[in-house]
C-alpha cells in the first residue's frame, strides 16, 4: 500500500489541489503538530467553541456535524487524512458546527498564531489555505445538492465515489478498495436517510454488482458503474489530476 506518512499527508493533500514550491513545502513541514488520538464520536471541537488551534486529519475520518433543535444530527461533510476541516476557524472565531471523529482518528493540532504568522510571511501559503477552504465549500455545495435533490440510491453511490476519490488522492487506498468503518447510522446522518433505508441501499448497490462489502471493508467492484449510478463528476473536488 502506498501509505503516506502521517505528517506528510496534509502536504500531499495540498499538493493535490495546488502547485507547491519546495520552499512552500519546507514552510508547511516546519509547522509544529500536536498529535492526539480520538475515539469515534468523541467531540473534538464543539459548536460555540472559540478554538485556538486548527487541526489536520492524520488518520481516520472526521465529520462536521450540526444538530437540529430536536436533536437530529446532520453530518454536513466528511474529512479524510490530509484534510484541514476547521481552517476557517483561523478567521471565524466562533465555531458554527461540531467536528467529531466518525472512526478512531489521529489528529494534528496547529496553533492559530503560528498559522497566522506563516500566512503573513508567505503569500503562497495563505493562498493555498484559502484554496483549501474554498474547496471545502465546494464540497458542502455538492452535499446540499446531493442530500436535497438526488434519490437515495444515487445519493449513496455519490458519497461512496467521493470518499474513494478523496482517499485515493492521498494514497490511503488502492484499486477502489477502502476500509470504511463508518456505521450505517453515520451514513444515514450524512445522507439524511434512516438507518433501515441506508441498509437497504447498500444491499441494492451490492445486488446491482456495483460494490461488495466484507465487514467494514468496502470494494467498488464496478467503478464506472458506481460513478454513473452516483451522478458523480469529480470537478467539485478541484484536484489537479483526476486520480480515479
Amino acid at each position: 500500500m502506498a501509505h503516506v506518512s502521517s505528517s506528510n499527508v496534509f502536504i500531499r493533500k495540498l499538493q493535490n489541489i495546488s502547485d507547491l514550491t519546495q520552499s512552500d513545502i519546507a514552510v508547511l513541514e516546519s509547522i509544529p503538530l500536536q498529535k492526539r488520538e480520538y475515539r469515534a464520536n468523541q467531540d473534538l471541537v464543539r459548536e460555540g467553541d472559540r478554538p485556538t488551534h486548527s487541526f489536520v486529519v492524520l488518520d481516520g475520518m472526521v465529520g462536521s456535524t450540526k444538530l437540529t433543535g430536536e436533536g437530529k444530527r446532520q453530518i454536513t461533510s466528511f474529512f479524510v487524512p490530509g484534510d484541514l476541516p476547521d481552517l476557517h476557524g483561523l478567521h471565524l472565531s466562533v465555531m458554527d458546527c461540531t467536528f467529531s471523529p466518525l472512526t478512531s482518528a489521529r489528529l494534528g493540532f496547529m496553533r492559530h498564531d503560528a498559522l497566522r504568522a506563516i500566512c503573513n510571511q508567505h503569500a503562497s501559503i495563505s493562498t493555498v489555505f484559502w484554496r483549501s477552504t474554498l474547496i471545502d465549500a465546494a464540497i458542502y455545495r455538492e452535499w446540499v445538492t446531493n442530500v436535497g435533490r438526488r434519490d437515495g440510491y444515487t445519493r449513496m453511490a455519490h458519497i461512496l465515489c467521493e470518499l474513494i476519490v478523496r482517499l485515493r488522492s492521498v494514497g490511503r487506498i488502492e484499486d477502489h478498495v477502502a476500509e470504511l468503518p463508518i456505521t450505517q447510522s453515520a451514513l444515514g446522518d450524512a445522507l439524511g436517510l434512516s438507518a433501515v433505508h441506508v441498509n437497504r441501499l447498500l444491499q441494492e448497490l451490492r445486488r446491482d454488482g456495483l460494490i461488495s462489502t466484507v465487514g467494514s471493508r468496502f470494494h467498488a467492484v464496478d467503478w464506472t458503474g458506481l460513478v454513473r449510478a452516483g451522478d458523480f463528476q469529480a470537478t467539485y473536488l478541484h484536484q489537479r489530476t483526476e486520480q480515479a
Partner: peptide, 11 residues
C-alpha cells in the same frame, strides 16, 4: 421500520 417505510415511500 417506520422511518424506513417513510424513506421507501419517498423514493
Amino acid at each position: 421500520g417506520i422511518e424506513g417505510l417513510m424513506d421507501l415511500t419517498r423514493e
